[in-house]
Write a protein that binds this DNA or RNA. Structure first.
Lengths: 333, 333
DNA sequence: CTGAAAGCGCTAACAT
DNA sequence: ATGTTAGCGCTTTCAG
């Protein structure tokens, strides 16, 4: 089977501990240069690969961190995954993925004894998940879990500014395109949308699709258009949803950015390359991930740190889909 | 610290082995119903969580499989990731991710003693990667690794039929939109494209972008359009690329599906919802993943199986971006 | 039906 | 500068 430290030691007629020390490049103990080289050579020659399970058992550390998040098949989460993965990797850790979605009921999330967990937007998906005892968790995204370190994003503010932008552009009928969620966020997109609408004295319209992703959104928007005619503006739950909405508009003969102003949410790179390019509220993705990982490793290093919490704002990115800028913003009723 | 089998055993004044047997629900040994229940209760009460590192060490199996693949931030690979993950998960295995990309030079792929590896399109990215001894690998995608089980996709055939469709639709100037690759596939998209063009007696045009994703593709296509004017048809390396190309066309005042016929590759779900909807060559994603996982677990179960190999065809999906169907396909020169 | 003993491959603490 | 001993938490014989 696989070659072990002892195999090497035996061949060299030394202790397997010495081999371990050399292979881990432990500079705090002194080992003769000669031994060092002999070990290194032999290890390479025999094709030694450390057994991480054994090491993990001995050290109580696995050098793995878990990612709990929605499916990377969703535009935005694909980017989040990439960012988180490469940060984790650059720190020498492996990444174990664990889907957190309300479709996945069978989740037993922290089956593996990972050294830490990053949970992204997991609150709105699975609610108050059970926190594993003794494993550091940091939660990223919309909701600040009060029991763990967290990086929250000001979804509410983002939603407000998107809505406000539509209002300022002269829209009077504005609908929020969203989907059914098991949990209602108190400071989420809907809330921000409604509050901006209310402040402007406008009626908040809602287009709620069945769960099932963008395809369902397209159907829902189409249905809505047939029944109520086109609103002036659409504020969408995510960029995926915005693309679906734009498609639905096209199906009914309307052009986004011309007939109807559309704003997405997340600002995925695809939005820049679509036609029309997509106005969107930018998730501070890079920063969020960077800070989150930072928090996590802080806590791994120092478990008794006091709670680390931060909040990051969002920024509206205006592109073609929200139409030409209004000359004057005086069209409120 | 964490509660162990022994903790439970001690509390109940029985052997930790018994506890292990109960907790693993080993029906081959007989254990009194009473003991069984006492153990189960106590385990729950004490919040027992098995230590998988220990178990892995003892059994030589980790119940983890590794995914080597390009970043899920790319449209197509996001879907692949999801499919593979959920299959793996449904079989009771954890998923460790390992990015295989030519940007990531620092890869030490199988650091963890996983029970198996799925490598997706890894050949064209990293070339003949080193196969870990003793760990089952199955490779999915464009290239059939001759040393492992593999599920190959007939990229070449797919590329040919896309190109042929453009030709049949009346295109005479057709360009393949692609990017620089470290390795050249002999039976890949370019090859299929060129061979179809050659057969039709047409000159194959190539638009090669710098590496760096869709944004670079947009630049490259724009540059090309300015210099050479619009081809009649564009056959793109991937759907991401197609979207970028369509954007570049729009930048120069051309409409995909009207002025220029565009076909992508992969058939990601987003293509159905874009405007115009995207014609594409469909990767047999679901089937590929299903068969791949099947192969992998076959081999995990039975290491000495003979090599499992299969090939799957692609299918052209015609939508709006490739324009209206030609009345007659007689426009060859 | 249950327990005792051994060992998976590694690291840590203490010798020498 | 190197070796010895012990143990991480679990599973697997093999005895009782």
């Amino acid at each position: 089977m696989a070659v072990t430290l002892r195999d090497i030691a035996r061949k060299l007629d030394i202790s397997h501990v010495t081999v371990s020390l050399v292979l881990n490049d432990r500079r705090d103990v002194t080992i003769s240069q000669e031994t060092r080289e002999r070990v290194l050579d032999m290890a390479k020659k025999m094709g030694y690969r450390p057994n991480h399970a054994a090491r993990a058992l001995a050290m109580g550390k696995t050098q793995m961190i878990a990612l709990w998040m929605p499916s990377p098949a969703k535009l935005y989460y694909g980017k989040v995954f990439e960012a988180l993965y490469s940060l984790t990797r650059s720190l020498g850790y492996e990444t174990v993925f664990c889907l957190a979605d309300y479709d996945d009921s069978s989740r037993k999330p922290y089956d593996w004894p990972v050294d830490g967990i990053i949970a992204v937007d997991t609150y709105e998906l699975v609610g108050k998940f059970e926190l594993p005892r003794g494993i550091p968790v940091v939660s990223l995204g919309s909701h600040a879990d009060t029991r763990s370190d967290s990086v929250t994003v000001d979804i509410y503010g983002g939603a407000m500014s998107a809505t406000q932008h539509l209002i300022d552009s002269g829209c009077r009928r504005i609908a929020h395109v969203t989907t059914e969620r098991p949990l209602t966020e108190r400071r989420g997109r809907s809330a921000g949308f409604k509050s901006a609408m209310k402040a402007a004295g406008l009626r908040a319209e809602l287009i709620v699709s069945d769960p099932g992703g963008p395809a369902k959104v397209r159907e829902a928007v189409t249905r809505y258009l047939k029944r109520h005619g086109p609103p002036d503006g659409l504020f969408c739950y995510s960029d995926d949803f915005a693309f679906a909405a734009i498609r639905a508009l096209a199906d009914e003969g309307f052009t986004a950015g011309k007939d109807v102003r559309v704003i997405g949410f997340d600002n995925v790179p695809e939005g820049e390359l679509s036609t029309p390019s997509l106005s969107s509220v930018a998730q501070p993705l890079e920063e969020m991930c960077k800070v989150g990982i930072h928090f996590l490793f802080n806590r791994i290093r120092e478990p008794d740190l006091e709670r680390q919490v931060t909040s990051i704002g969002m920024k509206l990115v205006v592109r073609e889909s929200s139409g030409p800028q209004a000359e004057q913003s005086g069209m409120s009723q």
